[in-house]
Design a binder for these strands. Structure first.
Lengths: 350, 350
DNA sequence: TGGAGGGCGGAGAGCGCTCTCCCTTTGTGC
DNA sequence: GCACAAAGGGAGAGCGCTCTCCGCCCTCCA
């Protein structure tokens, strides 16, 4: 209509919509944000104008005045003054776990229109920057995947009292929200299953015991076995890696060749353990039954496929997002924890 | 100094810094953005003021005036009117590939202070929204992981002429930048290796041949084998999945039991193929040599570990980010392709 | 010594939006 | 019929930043 026939040059603004609709900017804003009552007739006129102009709100402008960005960060943190070229983060990213978390978080964020920004916090500086970012409103809150028990980020976040949710219980008690899986229950599932199979000589390959997940899975398993009347369960630390699982299984077979049932605290380690068992000519599950933990894609890729304790990663990640959004919207201002029940997935290995 | 002693209430702005430094807002802005020459002495004074106030620029305000957001989106796209509850995306996210791309992209983005937003484009609407987002300046550009040959997003992006870079050559020729691996070279690496081992009966398990990666790996392999004097190479479609690899290997063994060398177009399929070979009592590599493609974590998790054609995913992802940033900064305004050379990684399977 | 020119800092106008205030209109009770 | 309330819409002030203009001052040359 006007002489402004240069397409893709200037984007429609609220002002343009207002002009087309014949109302004020304020009214359009009210309609779009569903604030206060607007005459239903005007309501329709405004929406029509929005679609004819092809208007989309400008995030930056909105953020500037509301002080909210409509985006949260997924922080992968492992700050413990690790060398910059340490391949640890690289290894983490190639673990399916990361992708599953992303998928879960996005499933909640997408409907609400909130953006997900990815951030790596590899050292103390980066952690400080994450905290600064959320305090300064560059993001509205953070969802944290903390990879290391001595990671300083959870503490910083708790102290700053910013909206944040952790995946997994923090290594030390602190006022911060988190989601987790009921590890003891999961370990018990594994123990009871091995006992029910009639395993007489049960052992375990644990994760790093300085991590909550590692310690809990080990203690939970021992406790459950104790309830079954088994006073002692040999354990070997596999450090949550494939190679660690192999080494642990080698030692286990050398020191306890009578073993006929193993609870391995992660599927990735279990995959390594299975390879070693095969090399030693042990049949799984007939000679040795193996139960894993996580139900990651490694469980399906293993031969035989792993019987494992399922950790509902996607659901847990989705809950993280929900908790965070609630906190940001002030619908909840207390720290909360949500614990998920694990499930025993029966496959071929036990 | 002032009565504004409420901490964590109001964040320092340019104005505050200017006041502390005793200069104007404009000068502080110039110093921070390194624009024009500013007296070196003032320069220092301003930076001192910045650190005493703890000032950090407000992204939203900056975006509003510059029209740039300082963030790009990583779009995972597979729009082909797939059902919403299709588990395909979920499977994709649990593939290590995704995480490796993220890691590569972030390695470039982090130093330049650009944020990475994650986006899923699961249907046509979502694709349109992605294009709209970048046209409307919600993000400055996109890096695309397109999972399906009939995905409409690349075409939309090319038509809109917005800053975008694809991972992998588009299924149909179009003016859009991309990075890729020299597939033919990679397939030749595999073919030559199998020939050098003395394999007499070589076959291949291909990926989906309607995807460029699938077709190229198959044709490249056949061409290279032809150069070795082998006129015909049996091929079986494994669809790029673990199970597909298993099924393809079953058929291959049934129809060509004499096979002593296989090129499998992805490590994930190769892992499935290895399991089948083991079940059939075939020794790898003595009875059958297996060469994979990708060098993903599956290659290391396989038993025996896979000899495979390495696709430098992290490097390619990093290059995507570099190309995109160059395009956004107007340093490059033509579409560009960068092709990476694959490398044969020798392990136990061939 | 006067004028031109360049280097450098300040003033101020917005970017597009939300939100508070205020005004108009309409409805309601006495 | 009047006072008051309530509801709906408009005007306009910013949010924090960049960037264009403008003016000052210092240098250099004629």
């Amino acid at each position: 209509m006007t002489s402004d026939q240069t397409p893709a040059q200037r984007l429609p603004t609220l002002e343009d919509v207002a002009q087309v609709a014949g109302v004020s900017r304020a009214t359009v804003s009210r309609v779009i944000n569903n604030i206060r009552n607007v005459d239903p007739q005007l309501h329709k006129i405004v929406w029509d104008a929005v679609s004819t102009t092809g208007y989309v709100p400008n995030r930056a402008a909105r953020s500037l005045v509301t002080g909210r960005t409509g985006s949260i960060a997924l922080v992968v943190s492992e700050a413990e003054n690790r060398a910059a070229d340490d391949p640890f983060l690289g290894r983490f990213f190639s673990d399916p776990f990361f992708g599953r978390v992303v998928g879960g978080v996005l499933s909640v964020l997408r409907p609400s229109g909130v953006h997900l920004a990815l951030t790596l916090a590899g050292d103390e500086d980066a952690c400080a920057k994450v905290v600064a970012d959320v305090r300064q409103g560059q993001v509205d809150g953070v969802v944290v995947l903390s990879l290391h028990p001595h990671d300083t980020l959870p503490r910083l976040l708790a102290d700053a009292a910013v909206p944040a949710v952790l995946y997994g219980r923090p290594a030390a008690p602190m006022p911060i929200s988190y989601v987790d899986v009921a590890t003891y229950t999961g370990a018990k599932l594994a123990a009871d299953h091995l006992a029910a199979r009639g395993c007489q000589h049960v052992a375990t390959i644990s994760g790093s015991v300085d991590m909550p997940a590692g310690a809990d899975r080990l203690h939970g398993f021992r406790e459950a076995m104790a309830k079954q009347g088994v006073a002692y369960v040999p354990s070997y630390d596999g450090g949550f890696t494939h190679e660690g699982g192999e080494r642990a299984m080698e030692r286990l077979l050398a020191e306890h060749p009578e073993t006929d049932g193993v609870f391995v605290a992660s599927d990735v380690m279990a995959q390594g353990a299975l390879a070693v068992l095969r090399d030693h000519g042990k049949s799984v599950p007939d000679d040795v039954a193996v139960v894993g933990f996580d139900d990651s894609s490694a469980a399906l890729a293993s031969r035989p496929q792993l019987t494992t304790v399922r950790q509902p990663v996607e659901d847990m990640a989705a809950e993280m997002a929900r908790l965070l959004l609630a906190r940001i919207d002030q619908r909840a201002n207390r720290t909360t924890s949500v614990i998920f029940d694990p499930e025993l997935i029966l496959r071929a290995s036990a």
